[in-house]
Design a protein around this nucleic acid. Structure first.
Length: 581
RNA sequence: CGGGACGUAGCUCAGCCCGGUAGAGCACUUGGUUUGGGACCAAGACGUCGCAGGUUCAAAUCCUGUCGUCCCGACCA
């Protein structure tokens, strides 16, 4: 390919609407252009890399027994109503109307479609197991698209759905996908690691996310370097001990705490009550109902855990500025800062407490009277707790639940997610098969996603320097950029360049030749910005010495005799390629 | 949806506070000189100052509304 014959609109300056480095480089290197917020056009260099990532995914999915299909992006809302997700996923569902005013949805995912297919086509255990996948555009009505391709309204995703006859079979399918994902990301030159994950709206009971460590990621991951425990913060646990039980003391006693409305202020003089001897009382609105959540003063509530354990679809803190919420505080008798669960809690309210409070006594908590707290509170004696859950968010430095070594926390980008779904969808959408004994059973499902366009950006986020992108060979838009320095169609740099282009292309290497009439500095900067793994410099100075220069994107220049240039590049290519397969 | 910032040339931005003929750098066009790390000289083209109202003799500038973008939060298979 000749540079002048394709389209690589590089930018010298950083576009002002790009915040993170990968987004800036996507734009500066001419890989994408924004149509509007959350919607992007892939330009030739971006598209080539996207297709390479797709191809790696296809090869590994096929190797793992996947069957490629292509499902409609436009879907009838009825199947979403049938699965129950028309409500639960309404936050991300794009809805459109046709000319007859009938409503349709643009698929954010395809469990409903594939399960509908399975319901009609899979009838016998003899047809199972099956694993269908597709690579397709998804639509999500993101509240806030951001960071370029990271969180877009429309994006490319690989999604796969497995159907098995048994839980064991589903587990084996899950494991195959888990292993395939590990290979896929490795082949993409991406350091991604699996972490235990919350299942969110998708549902199911077992799940891992594949995470790329990056400060700009939108997820926090807790991990242990000693035993390799790793989990999304939404799910992570630690071995932090419970609050120590003391001798059961006297009845709760009210005492004045004027102006002390934070855990910290009660921890200080004159009160001196350690944060972990305080009970923090939160009022939440869970699916419209007020509930109380009790955690230790030291702890932060983990809303994901709360929602996962209670099954709530929507939960938010009650807000004193919201008139309908304010009623709940009035019912309790106090505003945040003096809330507690000992008195005035209506019997209709559920009270959820963190597991680590179980058995705690001699605790201090709000008296439900502004400016007063209660001491000597025994949570089990004095508070009507409806249910005990692990509800707190793990912090860095807490002991690992498995090996007691300190946990670390880091930011990460989610590029893949595997779920064991069970029979949630197959039951609702009637995807049943007849077993050997003639009895009907719902298929046991799993689903497995990879954000293809997000993976592309994650690779850039992880692999760049001050000069631009550093593409892993496996996904680079071109492997080699030939750069004739002194431009002249008849000069030796160009004629030798064209000759090398033909030779290397014939050897299966993807080569672009920068035939632009530009100064060397411009060509150097552009080739480094776009990030080709190897540049071949053809300059009159070195050619006069009978040499060409091979410049790996991240390594030193190597001068080789003209006659050996092609062979050297081919050798380099095969050495590099071996790292990615 | 809450908080904040910003919309001026293709890009990065100045001008706005304090109203008075729309600017710079880069990019682009033409000519010339250059040619191993984003060249130089000369000439040129490029704008409904996001949009709509309002105030005013006069609005990029002040006011109101609206649309859009970005950031933080909420949200997020």
């Amino acid at each position: 390919m000749l540079w002048s014959q394709t389209f690589i609109p590089t930018l010298k300056e950083t576009p002002s609407d790009a915040e993170i480095v990968s987004h800036q480089l996507l734009l500066r290197a001419g890989l994408i252009r924004k149509l509007t917020g959350g919607l992007y056009t892939f330009l030739p260099m971006g598209l080539r890399t996207l297709r390479k990532i797709e191809q790696i995914i296809r090869e590994e999915m096929n190797r793992a027994g996947g069957i490629e299909v292509l499902m409609p992006a436009l879907q009838p809302p009825e199947i979403w109503q049938q699965s129950g997700r028309y409500e639960t996923a309404s936050g991300v569902l794009f809805k459109v109307r046709d000319s007859a005013k009938k409503e349709w949805v643009l698929g954010p995912t395809h469990e409903e479609v594939i399960t509908t297919l399975a319901a009609s086509e899979i009838n016998s255990y003899r047809q199972l197991p099956k694993n269908f996948y597709q690579i397709q555009t998804k639509f999500r009505d993101e509240i806030r698209p951001r960071f370029g391709l990271m969180r877009a309204k429309e994006f490319l995703m690989k999604d796969a759905y497995s159907f098995d006859t048994s839980d064991e079979g589903a587990m084996a399918s899950y494991k195959r996908m888990y292993d395939a994902y590990t290979r896929i990301f490795t082949r993409c030159g991406l350091q991604a690691f699996p972490v235990e994950a919350d299942t969110g709206v998708i549902g199911g009971n077992y799940s891992h996310e594949f995470m790329v460590p990056a400060e700009t990621g939108e997820n926090d991951v807790a991990y242990c370097e000693a035993c390799h425990y790793a989990a999304n913060i939404e799910k992570a646990i630690s071995g932090l001990p419970k609050t120590a039980a003391r001798d059961l003391g006297p009845e709760p006693e009210q005492f004045p705490t004027p102006g002390a409305i934070t855990i910290e202020s009660l921890a200080k003089a004159p009160f001196g009550i350690p944060a972990n001897r305080q009970i923090k009382t939160l009022v939440y609105i869970a699916d419209g109902q007020p509930v109380l959540i009790l955690i230790r003063g030291y702890d932060q509530l983990n809303e994901s855990k709360f929602m996962a354990r209670t099954g709530a679809i929507e939960a938010r803190p009650a807000d004193v500025k919201n008139p309908t919420d304010l009623v709940h505080f009035t019912t309790l008798g106090a505003l945040p800062g003096s809330l507690g669960a000992v008195r005035s809690v209506p019997l209709t309210w559920k009270v959820f407490a963190d597991e680590r409070l179980r058995g705690a006594n001699e605790m201090t908590t709000g008296a439900n009277s502004d400016g007063f707290h209660l001491r000597n509170v025994s949570i089990e004696r004095d508070i009507r707790v409806s249910d005990w859950f692990d509800l707190r968010t793990v912090r860095a430095g807490e002991p690992c639940a498995k090996c007691a070594k300190p946990l670390k926390i880091r930011r990460a980008i989610e590029v893949g997610h595997v779920f064991k779904l069970g029979t949630k969808y197959s039951e609702k959408l009637n995807a049943t098969f007849v077993a050997e004994d003639g009895s009907p059973h719902p298929a046991v499902m799993g689903c497995y996603g990879i954000g293809v366009s997000r993976t592309l950006q994650a690779i850039i986020e992880q692999s760049n320097d001050k000069d631009g992108i550093i593409w892993p060979l496996s996904v680079a838009p071109y492997h080699v950029c030939i750069t004739p320095l002194n431009y002249s169609p008849e000069g030796q740099p160009m004629t030798l360049g064209l000759q090398l282009l033909a030779e290397l292309t014939a050897a299966g290497i993807e080569v672009i030749l920068d035939d632009r009439d530009e100064r060397p500095g411009v060509k150097f900067k552009d080739s480094e910005l776009v990030g080709f793994p190897l540049r071949v410099n053809l300059g009159e100075k070195s050619l006069a010495k009978g040499e060409v220069e091979l410049k790996p994107r991240t390594g030193p220049v190597k001068c080789v005799p003209i006659a050996e240039a092609a062979a050297e590049v081919i050798a380099w290519f095969h050495t590099e390629k071996a790292h990615y397969v």
